[in-house]
Amino acid sequence: MLEYLLSFLILTGATLTFIGSLGLLRLKDFYMRLHGPTKATTLGVGSLLIASALFFSSHNAGISLHEVLITVFLVITAPVSAHLLAKAALHLNLHSFAKMPAKSTKGEDGADDDAMDTQTPEEKSSSSDTHVPRKPV
């Protein structure tokens, strides 16, 4: 019985991890790619870790809960790094297929949001690759 549960958790986890990276490969702009790893991969690894906790609790003496620690840590940190990445991308004015809202306010770093949609992907890929981060004035 436990073995079926473990197999299910492991397969779900591995599939979700795979789908998260597939999103990284398939989706078209950076902001869309951000969705794959932050959600699918986090839950995928979470269920793998829970499977590992169950496995070691049943096979060794005593319960093994410290995998929960990594799960909790990942669930807390994944949104934080996603938020920072999105902020960095907005700061660099990366091309996006999504429209900015009309009444857009300036962000914390004072980046110009209006320039968002004027860059073509070709321009962006050539310019942002060699982009040297500058200090805010």
Binding site: I10, G13, A14, T17, G20, S21, L24, F30, R33, L34, P37, T41, T42, G44, V45, L48, L49, A51, S52, F55, E67, I70, L74, A78, S81, L85, A88, A89, L92, L94, K124, S125, S128, D129, H131
Partner: peptide, 26 residues
Amino acid sequence: PSMPDRILALDTLYINAIALLMLLGI
């Protein structure tokens, strides 16, 4: 193609490495 893309890929690689390690552990 952009720097945030690469950082995101690196972040995903870390998480995938954790998944690989846990699978190997089991």
